[in-house]
Amino acid sequence: MNFDVSEEMTVRLEMIREFMDREVIPLEGEMLHGDDATLAEGVAAAQAKVKQMGLWAPNHPVEYGGLGLSMVDHGLFAEAVGRSPLGMSVFGTQAPDAGNVEILHMFGTNEQHERWLRPLVAGEIRSCFSMTEPNTAGSNPTLLETTAVLERGEWVVNGQKWFSSSADGAAFAIVMAVTDPDAPVHRRASMIIVPTDTPGFGLVRNVSVMGHAGEGWASHAEVIYQGCRVPEGNLLGPRGGGFAIAQERLGPGRIHHCMRWLGIAQRAFEMMCAYANERVIEPDGSTLADKQVIQHWAAELSAEIRSARLLTLHAAWMIDRHGAKAARDEISAIKFTVANTMLRAVDTAIQVHGALGVTDDTVLAYWYRHERAARIYDGADEVHKSSLGRRIMRRAAPVG
């Protein structure tokens, strides 16, 4: 196992960190308090500079305009840009587009590559992933109710989805729907590309999360599919392959999330330490940083973040060398470990900031609202712990 960073990647990371501090983090004020149109202009300007620097879409295929980074290198990149809620969008690797690029590249036809993949990597369009349903367990995609029936060369899609993130303004959705209800449970569903201008595609609302309903790329939409008709050729991958494709998408996607969460944790930690050193709390000039309890929090968080980083890099290393299936244990472990580390870092930073921490004068409250879902999406903590624990117990069981 070797996590040495190449000279080329070291230079890229230095450029990214400097760019984040100079160009991206200053946009957060506009995100928290400003005008959406002004923010969009700022993000677009930053994206143009990223493209000029040759750092656009680092994890996407080279032949379609990306840098084709390994999973380990992409993990390091994701941590660097994860320091800001705007980082992934500015560099063209935001969810759900990043995951959709991966499965379109792996399973799409040449026609699908040209129509959807190429403009998606270029940032000319956005997409959404439409799997989760309000009436079924999101952690078990074998329970889907949405259906797609093949009629005279067209798929007819009917059903209700929600948390189709970024559906607001997306050009297309990749919809997971039951195409073979009588097949074995893991072969019932397929993935189908549905342009959002298709008659019968209805964006009902952007779901309000913790008191805030986002718009555009920051939205979590409820969508109704009512007799949506798309060509048979819009099937992504083999018929009945939806579950397998979802696993291919979600495994690497969890690496992306975990490294982004580490970026959040690290910045929250740095904000906590900086504020603790600035905040005078005694007439003699002593600060929060002089208090033993704050020192203990700093020591514990530093150790947790470093441990979570190494665990995540090891999972990325496993995927690079042996594939996502062989790294199932490592992926499950980082999903619940890193999510909780990140949330502890944000919560502790808020506590140290006191009243300031719960305001929108810093980015901490934004993360507290928006990242609590980290313990739920892409598999709830409890699901990952159960599946990992079950595999561990089976391996430890006596033969026979």
Rank of each mutant, 00 (worst) to 15 (best):
Q94H: 10
G87E: 09
L76R: 13
G108T: 10
E145C: 11
N135M: 03
G123H: 05
S84K: 07
V81W: 09
S130Q: 04
G66N: 08
M31E: 12
P61L: 14
K51P: 09
V50E: 03
G99I: 13
A45S: 14
M71A: 11
A46D: 07
D35R: 11
E102G: 11
L32S: 05
F77S: 11
G68W: 09
F77A: 08
E124Q: 14
E28Q: 09
M88E: 13
E63R: 11
I103G: 08
K49F: 02
A44V: 01
D73E: 15
E30S: 08
T38N: 05
A46G: 08
S127N: 08
C128W: 08
N140A: 10
G42V: 12
G42E: 12
Q52V: 10
E30C: 09
W116M: 04
H74Y: 15
L32M: 13
G87Y: 11
S130F: 03
T109C: 04
R115A: 14
H105W: 13
L143S: 12
V43R: 05
F129K: 00
M53Y: 05
T132S: 13
R126C: 04
L117S: 01
G75E: 12
A98V: 15
A48I: 03
Q47M: 09
G29Q: 13
A57D: 03
Y64P: 00
R115G: 01
A122L: 10
Q47Y: 00
G92T: 11
E102H: 10
R115E: 14
A45V: 02
E30F: 00
E23P: 02
M88D: 13
V81Y: 12
S89M: 10
G123R: 04
G123V: 12
M106K: 15
W116S: 04
E114G: 08
V90N: 05
A48R: 09
V72D: 05
L143R: 13
M106N: 07
A48F: 04
E145F: 11
A78K: 03
Q112K: 06
L76P: 02
E23C: 03
E41A: 15
N110A: 15
A95P: 02
R126A: 13
N110P: 02
E23L: 02
S84E: 06
G82T: 10
A46E: 07
V24M: 03
D73R: 04
V43Y: 04
F107R: 07
T142Q: 11
T93K: 00
S127T: 15
N59E: 14
V24N: 04
S127H: 03
H74Q: 06
S139L: 01
E79C: 08
F77M: 15
G87A: 10
A45L: 09
R118I: 03
G92C: 10
P85C: 07
R126F: 02
